[in-house]
Amino acid sequence: MSHSAAGKEHERVGAVAASTGEPDEPATVTARRAYLRSVAEGQPLTGNELGRMCGRSSSWGRSQIRAAKAELAAADQSATAEQEHAEALAEHPPATRNAEDGNDSPQKAADAAAAAAADPTPTGTADPVRAEQRPGASLSAVIGLAAGVVMSVAANIAHSFLPPAGAPAGWHPPVGAVLAAAWWPVALFLAVEVLTRVRWQSGPWWATARYGGVTIVATVAAIVSYRHMAGLLIAYGEDPISAHIGPLAVDGLMVVAGLALLTIGARPTPKESAPAERR
C-alpha cells in the first residue's frame, strides 16, 4: 500500500472514530456504531481498520463487524414486520376486521341455523309454560287420560257383549269384535303420547300432519266410544238423558287431559320465546 493510500485510510478511520465515540462508552458499542456509520457512508470499515480504531486486534474488529451485521439484520426484520402490520391495518381497519371475524365461517352460521331450527328454545331461556306448572301437573294429566281410556275401554268391551236382537241363547261376541271395541280409546291414548313425546320438525306441514292426525284419531275414538257407552247405559235401564249425556263426561275428561299433556310437552316457538329472552 502506498504512503498516500495509507494516509487516506488513516484519515477515514480517524474521522469515523471521532464521529461515533461517546464518553465512557464500551469499546464494543463504539466499534459497532462506527462500522454501521461507515456502511451508511458507503465505505464499510474492515476488521483490521475497526480493530486499530479501538486499539484492538483484527479478529476483535471482525467479531464486532459480525455482531453489527446481526443487529442490522434484526433491525431490518423488525422494520419489515412493522411495515406489514401497518399495511394490514390500513387495508382492514379494526371495525371492518371484527365484522369479518364474526362472519368468517359460513359453516358455523349454517350449524347455528340448523340447531335453532331443531331446537327453537333460545339458549338459557326457560319455557314459561313449563316453569309455571304446579308440581304434579303432568302426573294429574296422565292419570286423567288413563282413567278416561280405562273407562272407555271397559264400556266398549261391555257393549260388545250385549247380544243383538234375535241372538240365540249362549251367544258370545267374536274375539275380533271385542278387540276392536277396545282399540279406539287405546289408539287415542297412543296418539297423544306420540304427539307429546316426539320431537317434531318445525313448519306448517309438520304441524298439519301431527295435529291433523291426532284430531282424526280423537274424533273417531270419541264417536265410537260415545255410541258404545250410550248404548250400554240404555241397555242397563238408564233414562235417555243420562244415557246420552253421561258419555260426554268421559270424553270431556280425555280431551282435557290430552290437551294438558300437549301443553306441557309442547316446545315453545321462537315468537313465543322472544319476550322471555328479551327480559
Rank of each mutant, 00 (worst) to 15 (best):
190 L>I: 14
73 A>K: 14
44 P>A: 02
85 H>F: 00
255 V>C: 09
64 Q>W: 03
15 A>Q: 14
87 E>G: 09
30 T>G: 06
198 V>G: 05
146 A>I: 03
61 G>P: 02
157 I>A: 08
106 P>D: 12
143 I>A: 15
97 R>T: 02
202 S>Y: 07
235 A>L: 11
221 A>N: 10
124 G>M: 03
199 R>V: 09
160 S>Q: 09
231 G>P: 06
27 A>I: 11
50 L>H: 01
198 V>F: 15
144 G>R: 04
155 A>P: 04
56 R>G: 05
231 G>V: 04
199 R>C: 06
26 P>C: 00
47 G>I: 01
10 H>N: 13
111 D>H: 01
209 A>N: 09
181 A>E: 03
258 G>T: 04
147 A>R: 08
254 M>W: 07
254 M>E: 13
1 M>Y: 10
20 T>V: 14
94 P>Q: 04
26 P>I: 00
264 I>T: 10
135 P>Q: 09
71 E>C: 05
133 Q>I: 04
218 A>F: 05
257 A>T: 06
9 E>G: 08
81 A>G: 11
87 E>M: 07
187 A>Q: 13
141 A>N: 12
80 T>N: 08
53 M>C: 05
160 S>C: 06
88 A>D: 13
5 A>H: 14
271 K>N: 00
33 R>T: 02
23 P>V: 12
135 P>K: 11
268 P>K: 13
182 A>E: 01
154 A>G: 08
130 R>S: 11
227 R>I: 14
39 V>I: 11
